[in-house]
Design a protein around this nucleic acid. Sequence first.
DNA 1: GTTGTCTGCCC
DNA 2: ATTCTGC
DNA 3: GCAGAATGGGCAGACAAC
Length: 756
Amino acid sequence: MAPRKGSLEAAFARKEKGDTLTTPPSKQSQVATNGADGTPEAPAKRRRLEKGVAQTTPTKPEKVLEKVPEVTLHSGETGPWSLWHGGSAGKDAKELQCPAFDPKLREAEFPVGKPVSFSLLSGALLEIEELKGSGKGSRKTMTVILSNLFRLLMHVQPQDIIAAVYILINKVAPDYEAAELGVGDSIIIKALCENFGRSEATIKHSLASGEAKDLGEVALQSRMSQKMLMMPPKLTIAKVFSEMKAIAHSAGKESQKAKKEKIQKLLVASRGEEAKFIVRMLQAKLRIGIQIPTLLQALAYAFTLTKPGQPSGPAAVTDRRKGQAKLSAAELEPQMIVMEAAVRQAFSELPNFDKLIGALMEGRDGSSLLEVCRISVGVPVKPMLAKPSKGIAEVGERLAGKRFTGEWKYDGERAQIHVLSRDVIQIYSRNSENMTEKYPDVIEVVKQSLAEDVHSCIIDSELVAFDQVNKKILPFQVLTTRGRKNITVEDIKVNVCLFAFDCMLINGQPLVKEPLEVRRDKLWKILWPSEGKVTFAVYRNFSDINEEEIQAFLDESIAGSCEGLMLKTLTENATYEPSKRSLNWLKLKKDYLEGMADSIDVVPIGAYYGKGKRSGAYGAYLLAIYDQENEEFQTVCKAGTGFSDEDLVTHYGFFKTHQRPCAETNYNVNDKLKPDVWLEPCQVWEIRAADLSISPVHTSAFGVKADGKGIGLRFPRFLRIRDDKTPEESTGAEQIVEMFEAQASVSGTAAADDDF
DNA sequence: GTTGTCTGCCC
DNA sequence: ATTCTGC
DNA sequence: GCAGAATGGGCAGACAAC
């Protein structure tokens, strides 16, 4: 058994929360208790702002124009210009890969105004894929290809840029406009089987043997060996996108069949490598090394080098490095840098490619883009995220010499609350999904909690399941049982409390460029807490690194049913601008800390073939503990992370020779977890997890905490092999139960037994 | 009407 | 969510 | 340090199958 005593004791040391009232941040320096214990009076009665928001909102107008950063010309080494001048020698300027690419040179092949063949996009994807991992400068070349693709489209068929971008990110609409493809591996496999006369078994075998690294390659191989007499017309970018939209929009009876048939039609019409990318696109796993940040960079460069024509204005310029008005490197590089920053910021504030590209097509550049792509109520903003920190020492290094704050990290659901008006309130998730329908109760309570002079705002917060009778935070797992659609306030079974911690806009004024200290101050003035409904995240400010105080605050947060702490600078580098650094906050959780986390010794009893870069090895393992009483191995989780590439190879090599044709008789495994390969119980692994939860599929401590259910692990990851243990010496079922009961969010609540 | 499977989305 | 890796 | 790509548990909701 690995050390874990510390965590148990810490978790048992449940702190009774006092009834301390909150005070505004301006009047306090160190407040550790607040919120849930606010006064019970109706907020409306207490609502009286001494200093109204109107007076505290910034008097200076919000800057729209970004100050042009101090730009030093990199010319050659690291700056964007290094992508666009080097490496052209010997390359054909007709090739997308070539930095000197000029869209005009491809006019014969891609006539202006004609729909563009999907093979152009597919070809670019293939080139990019082939560059992946090919060493120095390969990422740069990938960006160049993408940029040049956009430049070409800009010249010949601008409306295809949006289609191409959506295809590249495997979506059909912005995240906040619910439009999901509703296609998964299962439906794709069915489509492939029927279409190419293959069986599911041969497809599985193809993947297991490494013959194909993913379903895209399966599709491609099947398509290649298919003889076609009559070829449907070539696919165009526009056609593929419209089919994707059609797939996303099909719903109701027989919709699965309809989706399958659309997929098959696309595959039949595909040529060359297209089938591979169509399938991957439907899986939302293009896996060619391009995600949104790279896409934004490529767009920025494309719209710097090439200028779209305007309806009644300047004509298009395909290559601003050429012609009479040509610009020098010294002029273009700063433009690229500013454009890239502006595009990133624009997408962060308005994550909508239609609008972003629309603005770029209008000719907006680094200095004017943000005038139209700005944070606004009703459109979710990209949220600030936090980087995991390995320990308090690391936190100290990062924050040394800066004023910072620690906030309790609540275990709930991120909620970005948009008050469009006092009557219209919307709620968005961490990933910009619209959750308004899920939380009518929150909307009501926010309405009642707004200070009088607030008519619009955007608030960042966490929604946490909350026991209104016992005034206690409930586990995340309780929150997940809430319904999501057609929810009415009357039949809500899982109540929540809102813990607010940031504020990005008030009364039309963006606050994203204000430091956290200012934003928090304003937040506290626009929202009135009410017990168990709305409050502020508990925080404590620090002006110096004091490891003991941070540790103590961390312990308090865990005793208070939280996951740990969020650590944020207050003044320096403390704006709300994920475009600049998406992981600008730090998170400190007990399971990151050596000796404070539950670490568990388990036995690998099954394995699953890896996909993509894991193909050719096992990508994940099925892990079990040994239950002495029942003399059987009971599963607790699968593990697919924590392995170095070397580990993956070692494990594969080892377990290849310890396979079993079927499960051992003393394996207690749910059918839904059936691994690709069964393993002999012959090794012990130490793994780590954040929490334990009641599991519908895992069998450890089966029936002990809930009828017909076992206990599973949340966020499991591999740590190391324990050569000093035998499988029978792995963690026992009774220890799993102890760990489950020791969790601060479970102990002392009614949920401790059989409530699941 | 019930049950099972699949998908997307929370973490 | 966590984690590892190439650049 | 960023960006990307592997992978986890578990829930509701939508459909399909029975």
